[in-house]
Amino acid sequence: IRLYEREDYRGQMIEFTEDCSCLQDRFRFNEIHSLNVLEGSWVLYELSNYRGRQYLLMPGDYRRYQDWGATNARVGSLRRV
């Protein structure tokens, strides 16, 4: 999964292949505005340590956080399923 700091895949990008319990420890931002799921399925959590609202993401492109059903861009952790 590739996470981007801004909409439309702009700004700083980070790629994950494994679970991350605290996004801010690995990426200086806690807001993700766009992403690409390259393979497999992922769950994004609004808070760190896999807490808060959850969003199940299938392979595909998500140009804005609204595309995955979120009401804001906050992402605290993520897990591959």
Rank of each mutant, 00 (worst) to 15 (best):
N36E: 11
Y4E: 00
R28F: 03
R64D: 15
G76C: 02
D61Y: 14
E15I: 08
L35G: 11
E46S: 05
R51E: 15
Q54L: 04
L78G: 01
G69R: 15
Y9S: 15
Y50A: 01
L56Y: 03
F27P: 14
F29Q: 12
G60H: 02
D67C: 04
V37H: 05
G76M: 14
Y65M: 13
Y55D: 02
G76D: 06
S48I: 04
N30L: 04
D8K: 14
G76N: 04
T17S: 08
Q54G: 03
N49M: 10
L56H: 14
Y50C: 01
L23I: 05
G69N: 09
A70I: 11
N30D: 10
S48Q: 03
E18H: 11
N30T: 11
Y4P: 01
Q24M: 15
E7A: 09
G69F: 09
E15Y: 04
G11Y: 00
W68I: 14
A73I: 01
M13H: 10
R63I: 14
D25A: 10
S48E: 15
G60N: 03
Y50L: 02
F29D: 10
Q66L: 11
S34C: 09
E39S: 08
D19W: 05
A70C: 13
G60D: 06
I32E: 03
L23T: 10
E31R: 10
R26Y: 14
R10D: 04
Y4V: 00
C22E: 12
R63P: 09
G69T: 10
D61M: 09
C20A: 12
R6N: 15
H33N: 06
F16I: 06
R28P: 08
D61S: 08
M58V: 11
S48H: 01
L57D: 00
R74L: 09
S41K: 12
D8C: 12
R64F: 12
L35F: 15
P59I: 03
V37Q: 02
R51H: 04
Y9I: 14
D61I: 02
D61A: 07
Q66F: 09
E7T: 14
L3W: 01
A73G: 10
E18S: 12
S41N: 03
L23G: 02
S34A: 14
G52A: 01
R28W: 10
G40F: 08
R10N: 13
G40E: 13
V75Q: 04
D19S: 04
P59M: 07
Y45Q: 01
E39Y: 03
L3V: 13
L47F: 10
Y50W: 02
M58S: 12
F29M: 01
H33D: 10
Y9M: 13
W42E: 00
E39V: 06
N36Q: 12
L57T: 09
Y45K: 00
Y55T: 15
E7W: 12
D8H: 05
A73N: 12
Q66E: 08
S48L: 03
N72Y: 15
R28K: 15
L44T: 08
E5W: 15
G11S: 05
Y45C: 02
R64T: 13
S48T: 04
R53H: 13
E5C: 03
Q66K: 15
D25I: 07
I32R: 06
V37T: 13
D19I: 02
E18V: 09
E31A: 10
